[in-house]
Amino acid sequence: MSERGVDFMQGWIHEHLPGELPADKATARILTTLAALDARHSGLEVSEIEEDFGSLERVIYEALDQPEI
């Protein structure tokens, strides 16, 4: 388990998903690309995050669908 990956993803979702975004796959794909770029900029590989969460796109899609997370 990568604590860095968990911390990054939880923080990223909290920072980028508040508000009224559509809970659709197109939005999830765009946000997945942005999250991956931000992760790499922070020195993390997407694979490190996906070790803990599974598919990054799925995690973001589910977060869009359940904004109280």
Rank of each mutant, 00 (worst) to 15 (best):
R58T: 14
A39N: 02
D7Q: 15
L44Y: 11
E62F: 05
A63L: 01
A39T: 01
E62S: 05
Q66L: 09
P18M: 14
S2P: 06
R58G: 07
E3T: 10
Y61H: 14
D52S: 13
H16S: 05
G43H: 03
G5W: 00
E45R: 07
A36V: 04
M1V: 08
G19V: 10
M1W: 04
D52R: 07
L31A: 09
E50C: 08
L34V: 15
V59L: 12
A26T: 06
D52G: 13
T33R: 15
F8Y: 01
L17D: 12
S42Y: 08
E48V: 03
A35M: 13
E20V: 13
E3M: 14
R58Q: 15
S2Y: 05
L56Y: 02
R58D: 14
V46T: 12
G19W: 06
A28L: 05
K25W: 06
E3N: 06
K25I: 07
D65C: 09
E50G: 01
L17S: 06
A39L: 03
I49N: 00
Q66C: 10
H14C: 04
P22E: 07
I69M: 15
L31W: 06
E51Y: 09
R29D: 08
S55D: 06
L44G: 08
P22F: 04
I49F: 00
P22R: 09
E68P: 02
T32V: 14
I13N: 03
F53E: 05
R4K: 14
R4M: 01
R29Q: 11
I60H: 01
L44K: 11
W12N: 02
M9P: 02
G19I: 12
P67T: 08
G54Q: 10
I49C: 01
E51N: 11
L31F: 12
A36E: 12
L21E: 05
A63F: 03
I13G: 03
S47V: 15
R29C: 08
L64H: 08
V6T: 12
L37P: 00
I30V: 14
V59E: 04
L21R: 07
V6W: 05
L37C: 04
L64N: 07
H14P: 00
D52L: 09
A28R: 04
L34N: 12
W12M: 11
R58E: 13
I69D: 15
G43M: 03
A36D: 13
Y61M: 15
I49V: 12
E62Y: 08
H14D: 09
S2Q: 08
I13E: 06
W12T: 01
T27Q: 09
G54R: 09
D24Y: 13
G5P: 00
T33E: 15
E3L: 13
A39E: 00
D38I: 09
D38K: 01
L64T: 07
H41L: 14
E15P: 00
G43K: 06
P67Q: 07
E48R: 00
L37V: 05
L56E: 00
I13Y: 04
L56C: 04
G5Q: 01
A63G: 05
A36H: 09
V59M: 07
E68C: 03
V46F: 02
E48F: 01
Q10C: 02
P67A: 14
Y61S: 13
A23L: 12
P67L: 14
F8K: 02
I69F: 15
E15D: 13
L44A: 08
Q10L: 07
T27R: 10
R58V: 15
L64V: 10
A23M: 07
P18Q: 15
E45A: 13
V46M: 07
R4W: 01
H16A: 06
P22W: 00
